[in-house]
Design a protein around this nucleic acid. Structure first.
Length: 622
DNA sequence: ATTAGGG
DNA sequence: CCCTAAT
């Protein structure tokens, strides 16, 4: 069944993707009452609402056992829901006295569980009590809203991220529990949005019967964003989708190169606010794909959005022969050459087929500490390159060494089409802005949009310049192997070396201020990994010997005051790992070997202060 | 901000 | 290293 229509309803504000059958989900139980209880409660309200519908579906399919959580499940600590996150409801179950939810946010894949029960939630948070369940829902208003919808939409966890395919389910079933009472049809909401400010008002219902394309969602924190989007924008979404994917992967690669070394991380969401971000993940799980996907508009069709789509859509944009645009090879190598054109007739028009086999990346400056690893250098270069390729390139056309002016002219007029062998045709790639990679500690990353299509002369032959597949390795952990002409002369005078990637086909670096659209996705940079040196460990041990554990601030001031990149949390963490290291066998240890003497001291100091702590507690207890 | 721990 | 509850 392919949905011809899409219907959505909801509250505006929070958005909760429904994700009925996740393949897996880790679990963290969340009590209602928390420091950030208010927001969390909202999230729960939403989740519970959604789950209510899911339960009905579940009931109909007699799959309840699949979702049941055992009764021994108890409760505990850990708040995991964060206000501005998107939650995905993974699993749910309902018992007479409890309601279990598993959910995850977009920022942490599959490790959130909300478990709401009469026991671990505080009294007013038990299921069925209006304070937990949103009033509308509880009182059946939501039901009415849903009742008008004849289409139930659900999403298969496996297929949505990649294909965007949707299943339409129709249910005509007797409702159950406290949710909904007698809707004729129940609906799976792909997105349920919830506006705290108006959550006791009417429910908004948006029918989108006439549109095939739609926006999956906007950002969770973005309120009042219309769902309805013109299809031309949705079309554009395909591009963004690809580009963002592209960026995401490449950014993931940058685990080693840090822009900020001040011990803090930052995440920029598209609305410019700063918030916490997600961790770099080792792989792109289906859920991640979905989450990622969810941020973006997508085509309602069944086609997926594999990387190839970028090219597909590029081809389409060129208005030309779809098969003609070859995948442009954009390895970072020297020179650009042009493939000879085949005579190809599309319609009445003769197309010029131009293939860029490779091109040179314009000059890049990468500043990186000499202490950085080779891997981080690679990543830094990767990022620099992808940044340039993404949005920072200006393309000029060179014919016989001269820039071809006038974007309005046809290829015929400029003579490009007659240039049989295209020997004299060239492309000039110039960075639009010089500051590609800010040196560490010197500022904030430029936010650019990545992956840009350059389409020349639409209407005739199209040449799409597609960023290379750098970073399309799906394993974010793996290092990329760039092949730029990196001069690895390490005549590094100071602590900072400037690495220059020379450009060949670039004549000038133009300094064109470019408007930076904030990327629409959160992006967060993990700090660079900086293994502790032996001397650092030495200093740490010495400080702890003196100060004891639990005074990391003082340890920091005392022994690492000038090591800006070592926070007291780092020191505490290092101490933790030191203890572990000292306990394991030398064979199991990794990294720079530490003198056994040092490790012995670690254990001794640890034992000593542990005892101290214990006796102190005894004293205070008495 | 710091501390303490889990991830 | 990250994340975050609890101080």
């Amino acid at each position: 069944m392919v949905p011809q229509t899409r219907s959505e309803y909801g509250f505006i504000g929070y958005q909760v993707p429904v994700f009925p059958r996740a393949s897996r989900s880790a679990r963290v139980r969340v009590p209602i009452k928390k420091k950030s209880g208010k927001n969390q409660k909202r999230a729960f309200e939403i989740l519970v609402s959604v789950a209510g519908e899911l339960l009905q579906e579940q009931e109909g399919e007699r799959q309840s056992s699949k979702f049941n959580l055992s009764d021994q499940e108890t409760c505990d600590e850990k708040t995991s829901i964060n206000y501005r996150q998107i939650y995905t409801l993974n699993k749910f179950s309902c018992a007479p006295d409890r309601f279990n939810l598993k959910a995850c946010s977009n920022l942490k894949s599959f490790d959130q569980l909300a478990n709401v029960s009469g026991r671990n939630a505080n009294l007013s948070a038990a299921v069925g009590i209006p304070s937990l369940v949103s009033p509308e829902f509880f009182e059946g208003k939501l039901k009415d809203a849903g009742g008008e919808l004849s289409i139930i939409q659900t999403v298969k966890s496996e297929t949505l991220p990649l294909t965007g395919s949707l299943d339409v389910l129709e249910r005509d079933r007797k409702p159950s529990s406290f949710f909904c009472s007698d809707s004729k049809a129940y609906m799976f909401k792909d997105w349920l949005t919830f506006d705290p400010s108006r959550h006791s008002n009417a429910i908004e219902m948006i029918n989108r019967d006439d549109e095939k394309n739609y926006f999956g969602c906007s950002q969770a924190a973005t309120t009042l964003k219309a769902f309805r989007v013109p299809s031309n924008i949705a079309d554009r979404g395909i591009k963004n989708l690809s580009s963002s994917r592209y960026w995401r992967v490449s950014s993931n690669l940058n685990g080693g190169a840090s822009i900020r070394n001040d011990g803090k991380r930052r995440m920029l969401s598209h609305d410019g606010r700063t918030s916490y971000g997600h961790r770099r993940s080792k792989r792109i799980s289906p859920f991640e794909r979905r989450c990622f996907f969810n941020h973006l508009p997508f085509s309602g069709s069944d086609r997926g959005f594999q990387l190839d789509d970028r090219f597909n859509s590029a081809n389409k944009r060129s208005d030309g022969d779809n098969s003609s645009a070859e995948l442009l090879h954009a390895a970072i190598r020297v020179g650009s050459s042009i493939a000879s054109p085949r005579n190809h007739l599309v319609s009445r028009e003769r197309n010029v087929k131009i293939r860029i086999k490779s091109f040179t990346v314009p000059e890049l400056l990468v500043e990186i500490p000499t202490t950085a690893t080779v891997g981080s250098l690679k990543r830094t270069v990767t990022e620099a390159v992808t940044t340039v390729l993404g949005d920072g390139l200006r393309v000029s056309i060179l014919l016989q060494g001269k820039k071809v002016r006038g974007d309005g002219k046809t290829l015929l007029q400029t003579g490009i089409s007659r240039d049989g062998k295209h020997r004299n045709l060239g492309f000039l790639l110039e960075p639009r802005n010089m500051k590609i990679i800010p040196p560490p500690c010197l500022g904030e990353r430029r936010i650019t949009r990545h992956a840009t299509f350059f389409t020349l002369e639409p209407g005739t032959a199209g040449v799409s310049l597609v960023p290379p597949l750098i970073g399309c390795n799906h394993s974010a952990e793996s290092d990329l192997h760039l092949i730029p002409n990196i001069s690895t002369n390490s005549n590094i005078p100071s602590s900072q070396s400037v690495l220059s990637i020379s450009a060949i086909s670039v004549e000038a670096l133009t300094l064109v201020p470019v408007h930076h659209r904030a990327r629409r996705h959160e992006f967060v940079q993990r700090r660079i990994r900086r293994p502790f040196s032996v001397s650092e460990v030495e200093a740490l041990v010495q400080a702890v010997e003196k100060l004891g554990t639990g005074r990391w601030r003082e340890v920091k001031v005392r022994a690492f005051d000038n090591a800006k990149h070592r926070t007291y949390v780092d020191l505490k963490d290092k101490w933790k790992t030191l203890i572990h290291t000292a306990r394991i066998s030398p064979q199991q240890r990794r990294g720079e070997p530490l003198p056994q003497e040092l490790l012995d001291r670690v254990l001794a100091v640890h034992a000593y202060w542990s005892k101290q702590q214990a006796t102190q507690q005894l004293e205070s207890g008495v």
